[in-house]
Each structure stands twice: as C-alpha cells, then as structure tokens.
Design a protein around this nucleic acid. Structure first.
Lengths: 178, 178
DNA sequence: TCGGGCAATTCACATTCACGAAACAGGCGC
DNA sequence: GCGCCTGTTTCGTGAATGTGAATTGCCCGA
C-alpha cells in the first residue's frame, strides 16, 4: 500500500473517496490555495515547491501513521463491530480480523492478485503473470502454489474456490464477517 | 490547551517530554536539519521560512487532531480499563504489566525499534541501523542479538516473530492484555 | 452407463538459502 | 579475577520454491 498523491483543491472528490476508503493521502496544495482543514491522521499536505527530503519525510510519516493505524484497527476489529476485509501489507503479512499469517514472496503476489478481485474469478493466466513477473511458470507450479496458499490462509477463514478451466476465486468463509 | 512550539533537533529532550505526556507539538525544523521521523498523530513539523497561512493551518490541524484524540481516549477509558502496552524507559528498563527486565545497550536499541512499530514488521536493515548507529553489523550479529533479546523478554510474555526474509514483529503474547 | 481425456489436487522429492543456536574469544567494569 | 556485554565462527534446521509423478474428480461422447 502506498500513499496517494493528489492536487488540492482540484481533486477534492478523489480526496473524499480516499478518506472514505480509509487510505492515506498527501495533498499537494496548488498555489494561492488555502491548505485543507482536516483532523484525519491519514492525511497530510505540502505546498510546492518543496525540498525532496521534506517531501519524502511527509510521505514516510503518512506511511508510518498508516501502519500503526492498520495495527490499531486490526486490534479493534477483534473486539468490536468494525469488519475490514482481508488486508495484505507490503511485508507479505496477510491480516483478517484478529489473525494474521505471513506469506512467502510468490504466495504474497498470488494473494495480492486474488485480493484485488475478492469474490471474483481470476484466471490462471492472470495469476501466473502476477506470481511470476517476466516468466512463465510450469503448468504445475501455479497449482502447487495455490495449494500451499490455500493451506496457509485457511486458519484465517479464507477459502480459494476453483472454477474449473476458468480460474480461482478468493472468498471469506467466516460467517462472523460477511 | 495549546500546541507547543519547539525547535528541532535542538529541543529534542522537550519533544520527548511532550510526547510522553501526550501533548500536541509542532517542531520547527532548523535549516539543513533532517525532518523528524514520527508516527505520532499529535506531532507535526514545518520548515521555516513559512507562509503565515500555512503555519496557522498546521497548528489548527494539530488542535483538531488533539481534540478528536481526547475524545477517543475518553471513550476508551470509560469503556474498558486501560491496558498499557510495553514501555521502555531511557535506562533500558523494559516494563510490561507487573514485570520488568533491564536490557543491555544494543538490545535496548533493538527493542526500542521494535516497540516503535509494535505488531508491524520491522526489516532487518532497519533493526541494524537502530542497533548499530553508524555501523553495519555482521550478518549474524543481528541474529544473535535478536536471539538474546527474545530470551530476555520472554518472561514478560513478549514474543518476536520472524517474517522470513522480511524482518521481525514484536507482539504481546499474553492473552490477558490484547 | 461406461470409459477416455483433461483439469486439478496432492505427494514426494531436490535444491538453495535464511535463520537459529551453540560455542568461543575479547573487552570492560566492579 | 570474575561476570556481563559484545562480536564472530560454525553447524544444523527448516522454509521457500521448483519439478515430476501418482491420484482424484469432472465433463462428455460413444
């Protein structure tokens, strides 16, 4: 997950979308425009021109706040009503509710592709491209890795259904969190 | 309550005090100095010279975050009893609940880096930088110190998980305090 | 209905590499 | 000198990935 960059105030609608989705964003304030007013910890802003070091510091700060924010909401979800879907962070850690598993590189890429289309069929070709960028894996490699991914994520109540000769579908099977 | 203004990095100790006290603060970064790294939502920074409007916007943002922060903690306090996480003081004493252990310098720095991102993956590179500032330790030095740190903190129900080829995660394993 | 054929699952290795753990040695303070 | 902290060497173990082959299951035509 990365920090979204957008212009302020011209991209205000997108800011609202991101805010609603709970995603971190950095507003680049246009000249003469007033800075945004926000109490959202997942939002920050800069005015250009800006030193590159300072810019990176703003982005890094947002990332760190987002990470701790994810951790907090994962903890909160275990206790109360919040019900975020499965989330795969940049370190290959897949979280759902209170539980988490860490995925090795290939499986992390496969999981990312499946999560992108949660509940929708993902073709074997798309999975091959996602799991092995720049290569074409042997026919069985994908099967085996799907098998291993299945076993690894089953404790999280995540299930990969096969749609014969079409592809695979990732679904949350736990009824406690539709 | 107002936002505290202080120079960075020359007033670093005061920043630590304010951070510990949970008070909002705006760091004024001195010329040529690197911006602070922080995941604290009650902290922000500016580099002078700065437009007065932008400055006020930063202060106002901190105030708003502080207000919502107060509201949240009040709600949390009224709901369930506070459950303080592990704390590492400046003398290298690590406390959690009733127990405590004292950590030697290297392990204290590693623990600080892990505590800073409790529940989140910390890369081996980040840990190396944290544990050995200005040096690059041998491959196994980090392994051995993580091993020693693991053994030292296990009585406190603190666990360091390995995320293979990515880093380490510190977690509180005691179910009495999630 | 039966069997061929294909798709998918599963197992059984082999290889490589990251990490864990023990043992040892130097240094420093009490 | 003794004990603790630290760094280094060395070896073992397990994880990640790839590959081949045996097995299962489904669809469809004879």
């Amino acid at each position: 997950m990365d920090v979204a960059l957008l212009r302020w105030p011209s991209e205000q609608p997108r800011r609202a979308q991101l805010s609603h989705a709970g995603l971190p964003r950095l507003l680049v304030v246009e000249p003469e425009a007033a800075p945004p007013l926000s109490a959202d910890e997942l939002e920050d802003w800069v005015r250009v021109p800006i030193d590159e070091v300072d810019f990176e510091a703003r982005v890094a700060g947002l990332r760190r706040r987002y990470d701790t924010h994810l951790t907090r909401s994962a903890a909160a979800a275990s206790g109360v009503d919040l019900c975020p879907g499965p989330v795969l962070d940049a370190d290959g850690v897949l979280r759902l509710g209170a539980g988490w598993v860490c995925l090795p590189p290939v499986e992390a890429r496969l999981a990312a592709a499946l999560l992108d289309r949660l509940g929708v069929v993902v073709s074997r070709e798309a999975l091959s491209r996602a799991g092995w960028p720049g290569k074409v894996p042997a026919r069985n490699s994908l099967d085996v890795h799907v098998l291993r991914l299945r076993r690894r994520i089953s404790p999280l109540s995540l299930v990969i259904h096969t749609v014969r000769s079409r592809g695979y579908v990732l679904e949350v099977s736990d009824p406690s969190c539709p």
